[in-house]
Amino acid sequence: MVLFLQQLINGLSVGSIYALIALGYTMVYGIIKLINFAHGEIMMAGAYFAFLIAVSTNLPFVAVMLISMVLAAVLGVVIERVAYKPLRNAPRISLLITAIGMSLFLQNLALVIFRADPKIMPTLIAKHPINIGPIQVGTVTLTTLVLSIIFMVILDVFVKKTKPGKAMRAVSEDKDAALLMGINVDKTISLTFAIGSALGALGGVLYGITYTQVYPTMGILPGLKAFIAAVLGGIGLIPGAVLGGFAVGMVETISKAYLPTQWTDAIVFGILIVVLLIKPTGILGKNEKEKV
C-alpha cells in the first residue's frame, strides 16, 4: 500500500509534466487545428535554455525557469510566423508535414550545436526527501507538482477572465466570426503559440531536472506521450489536456512499477488506440455531427 501511494505521487509528478506539455499541443490544435509535432522540440529547447543559463550564471531556480520560458515562447512565435503562417490556408497535410519538418530541424540544430552526448543538468533544486507519514517525497517531485498546478491555475484564469483569453477562445470557436468581431486573429494565434511554448518549456525544464539530463532527442518520447495525453482528454480542450496528462503519467508510473518496463510504452499507445476507437474526441470531447 505504501509502495502504491509512493507510485501514485510519482505518477502525479510525471503526469503534471505531461500535462504541461499537453497544454501546448491542445491549445495549438484548438486554435489552428494543427498537431504541432515541433512542440516536443520546444520542450527540449526549454530544457537547453535552462541548462545554458544555469551553467553560465548563478541565478536562482525561479529566474532560470522564467527566462527559459520566455525564450521558448519567443522561439514558438518565430516558428509559427516563419513556418506555419504562410500555410494557414493550405491543406492540413501540408501543415502537418511542415510541423514534422520543423521538429526534425530543431532536433538536428540542437544536435549540431550541442552534440549528441547528454549534458548533466545542474542541481537547481536542492534534493532531500520529505517525509509525509510513511511516504517519502523528493523535493523535485514536490516542486514539479506544485509549479505545474500553479501555472495551470494561472492559465485557467487567463483564458476565462482576461480579454486576450476570451479572444483565444473566440478564435478557436470560429476564426472568421472572430475576425468579424474585430479580434486580431494573427496576434491571438501568436499569443497561443507563446503561451503553449512557455508551458512546454516549463515541462522541459522540470523533465530535465527530474531525469538530470538534457539531450537533443529528449523531446520525442515525452512529446509523443503528452500528445497522447491531449488526445485522451479531448484534443482542443484545456481541462482535457490536464486530465489526460495526469492519467498518462499515472498509468505509466504504475505499469512501470508492476510490469516489465519495456511494455510501458505499448500500454500508453494501447490506451491511445482504445480511446480513439471508442471515443475519438477524447474523454471530455463532444461528438461532432458530420456536415455535408
Binding site: L96, F227, F269, G270, I273, L276, P280
Partner: peptide, 25 residues
C-alpha cells in the same frame, strides 16, 4: 479507417509503434 484526417494519422502512428514494441518483446 473509421477515423479521419488527424485522428487517423495519430491512430496509425500508435499502431505502428505498437507493432515495433510487440516485435521488441
Amino acid at each position: 479507417l473509421r477515423l479521419r484526417g488527424d485522428y487517423l494519422a495519430i491512430i496509425t502512428l500508435g499502431f505502428g509503434e505498437m507493432i515495433r514494441v510487440i516485435i521488441n518483446n
